[in-house]
Design a protein around this nucleic acid. Structure first.
Lengths: 160, 160
DNA sequence: CATTAGTAGTTCGTGTTCCGAATCACATGT
DNA sequence: ACATGTGATTCGGAACACGAACTACTAATG
């Protein structure tokens, strides 16, 4: 077990610090589009599909009362819309507006770009391994779809 | 055409979602000790060493004005202390109090424990690989010491 | 059917977080 | 000494997050 170069980090430290990086990306990427990190995250979640407030709370890990305000602010900026649920008169479905959808795409793309450059120092093989291992962790822990998986499943997908 | 099992995630998605997991851990772990995530993070940073306000801003990625309040609240709870810098009369050094140090250790340990269980589904070899790759990303991007590495440095190393 | 639960969302009050602009106090260069 | 720079706080304002209380509708029960 000779650690050669600068002291190998443990998994825990690596996870925590990489999370710090990703948070910073969200903040910077959001700033670029006039979004707070939370607003950006909301838009990203809604890219996949509309949600009711309760489900949204489940996905984002927020109390209902926290969501009302977040959705309000995004709605006031014309990014999302509350639609009545045809099945249940007390429920609403929160969905992206056209404008919100556009902004979400941009924010999403920018965020992807920035996160991607974080791992730019890795070779393709290593990046694949990282994706596999980290993906396993993510799936083991049943993380909700807080960030879509762009269809990149096909080995040589078209990169927009 | 689609894979039945689970469609391998891309690096970007894996990173973002794992970051979501870690954020949740910070929140839960903090709640357990009556700390907000930011307060917990501050304590963890100060575990390594005392910092001046400016340096602290650099490490945490916050504006000075944001820090004053955060430090204030932690100081009011008796967790940190502002010490005058002997070299420079306008500077202060923020350091953990005894109580803060104790709480920081507990929070840190709990956070480590929780983050560790996130990767419990991986074998030892895989976990090592993940640590190596993610550690590389972290070091490539020069993440400040927002979370100490203390685990078992003892085995072979005094670090530098 | 009427009553009782339960569920979906909002409102309200409180505390935290974050920022930029302005300010104060000390430091340093010329 | 004087101008400039730097460390930190203050201030005003926006966003965020929560629990508790509340409204409105739905579902279950008798």
């Amino acid at each position: 077990m000779g650690k050669a170069v600068g002291e190998q980090l443990g998994v825990v430290t690596a996870l925590v610090r990489s999370s710090f990086l990703v948070n910073a990306v969200y903040a910077e990427s959001g700033r670029e589009y006039g979004l707070t990190p939370q607003q950006g995250q909301l838009l990203c979640v809604l890219m996949a599909q509309p949600y009711g407030m309760s489900d949204l709370g489940g996905v984002l890990g927020l109390a209902k009362s926290s969501l009302t305000g977040l959705v309000d602010r995004c709605a006031q900026r014309g990014l999302v819309r509350r639609e009545p649920d045809p099945q249940d008169a007390r429920a609403v479905r929160v969905a992206l507006t056209a404008e919100g959808s556009e902004l979400a795409e941009d924010f999403y793309a920018e965020t992807c770009r920035r996160v991607e450059t974080l791992s730019a120092g890795l070779g393709d093989a290593d990046r694949g391994t990282l994706a596999a291992l980290l993906g396993q962790v993510v799936q083991d822990n049943k993380v909700p779809v807080v960030f879509m998986e762009l269809d990149e499943g096909a080995s040589t997908a078209h990169r927009r």
